[in-house]
C-alpha cells in the first residue's frame, strides 16, 4: 500500500512541497509563538483570500499575486502596532478583517470562480506543481540560511527585545524579515492545507516542541520534524481513507501536540538534566 502510495508523481510532489513548507512554517512559527505573534499567520491567511480572489479575477497565478499582498499586510500589522502603540493581536484583527472583507467583496463582484476558490480555502496538496515545489525548497533554504547566519540575533531579539536593541541588534530589521518570510510561507502553505488552516502549521508544531524541549535548538529541530511528520502521516491517511488532506494533516498535528503534552507531564526531554 505504501509503495503504491509513493509511486504516484503527484504524491511525491505533494509530499516534497508539503514537507518543505511545513518545516519552514514550523521553524518560523517558533519565533512567532515566542514573540506572541502566533496569530499573525491567521491574519495573513485571511489576507491570502484577497490575493487569491484578485489573482482569479485577473487570471493570474494566485501564489505570485498573494505574496506581495500578504507581505504588505504583514508590514501593515507591524506598522499599526508601532503607530497606535497597541498589542499585535489587535493589529492582526484589524488587518485580518480588512483582508477577509476585501477578498469576499472581490469574489462577490467577480462571481463565477467560487468553485476555484473552494480549492484554495481547503487546500489541495496533491495539485502542487513542480514550480511551486521548487519555490517551497527555496523558502526552506532561505529560512535555514537566516537561522544559520543570524541565530543569535534572532534568539536574543525574541527573548528580550529591548535588551537586544541595546546590543546594537537591528531588531526592526529582524522583525521585518521574519514577517516577510512568513508571508511567503503562508502563501505557499495555502496549497498544502488551505487558507483556513495555514496558521495551524505555524503554531501547533512549535508549541508541541516547546512543551518537551530542553534547549532552543531542540525546539527548532523538533518543531520542523513534527511539521514534516504530520504532512507525511496526514497525506497517507487521507489517501487510505479518502478524506481531505489539509484537515487530516492538522488533526495529525493535534495528535502530536496531545502526545507532547502527555510527555511534558512526565518531564519531556528536560528529564535529561
Amino acid at each position: 500500500m505504501i509503495a503504491e502510495f509513493l509511486s504516484y508523481g503527484f504524491v511525491q510532489r505533494g509530499l516534497a512541497a508539503g514537507s518543505l513548507v511545513a518545516a519552514a512554517c514550523a521553524l518560523l512559527g517558533v519565533f512567532l509563538v515566542l514573540k506572541r505573534l502566533s496569530l499573525i499567520g491567521d491574519g495573513m491567511s485571511h489576507v491570502c483570500l484577497t490575493g487569491v480572489a484578485a489573482a482569479l479575477l485577473l487570471s493570474a497565478n494566485p501564489v505570485y499575486v498573494s505574496v506581495p499582498v500578504v507581505a504588505a499586510a504583514s508590514l501593515g500589522i507591524m506598522k499599526i502596532t508601532q503607530k497606535f502603540k497597541i498589542y499585535g493581536d489587535a493589529a492582526i484583527g484589524i488587518v485580518s478583517a480588512a483582508g477577509l472583507s476585501i477578498g469576499l467583496l472581490i469574489t462577490a463582484l467577480a462571481g463565477g470562480f467560487n468553485t476555484d476558490l473552494l480549492g484554495y480555502l481547503f487546500g489541495s496538496i496533491l495539485t502542487v506543481s513542480k514550480d511551486e515545489a521548487v519555490l517551497c525548497g527555496m523558502l526552506l533554504a532561505a529560512v535555514l540560511a537566516g537561522l544559520f547566519f543570524f541565530y543569535r540575533d534572532l534568539t536574543s531579539a525574541c527573548f528580550d527585545e529591548p535588551f537586544a536593541r541595546t546590543r546594537g541588534i537591528a531588531v526592526q530589521t529582524v522583525n521585518t524579515v521574519l514577517v516577510i518570510i512568513t508571508s511567503v510561507a503562508v502563501v505557499l502553505a495555502f496549497k498544502v492545507v488551505g487558507i483556513f488552516l495555514i496558521s495551524s502549521l505555524l503554531i501547533i508544531p512549535p508549541v508541541a516542541a516547546l512543551l518537551i524541549s530542553r534547549t532552543f535548538k531542540q525546539v527548532l529541530w523538533l518543531a520542523a520534524a513534527f511539521g514534516v511528520a504530520s504532512v507525511w502521516a496526514g497525506v497517507y491517511l487521507s489517501f487510505v481513507f479518502n478524506i481531505p488532506s489539509g484537515a487530516t494533516i492538522i488533526l495529525v498535528n493535534l495528535c502530536v501536540l496531545a502526545l507532547s503534552y502527555g510527555w511534558s507531564k512526565m518531564g519531556g526531554l528536560r528529564n535529561g538534566r
Binding site: 544559520f148 547566519f149 543569535r152 528580550d160 535588551f163 537586544a164 516547546l210 534547549t215 532552543f216
Partner: peptide, 29 residues
C-alpha cells in the same frame, strides 16, 4: 531593566545562554 520583559514560560534557554546574549559581536550560532 526594571522588569525583565522575558515572560514566556516556555523559552528553553539556559542561564549561560542568556548571559551569552550580552555579547553581540557574532551573529551565527
Amino acid at each position: 531593566a526594571q522588569k525583565s520583559p522575558v515572560s514566556q514560560s516556555r523559552f528553553p534557554v539556559s542561564a549561560e545562554e542568556v548571559v551569552l546574549m550580552g555579547l553581540s559581536d557574532r551573529h551565527g550560532s
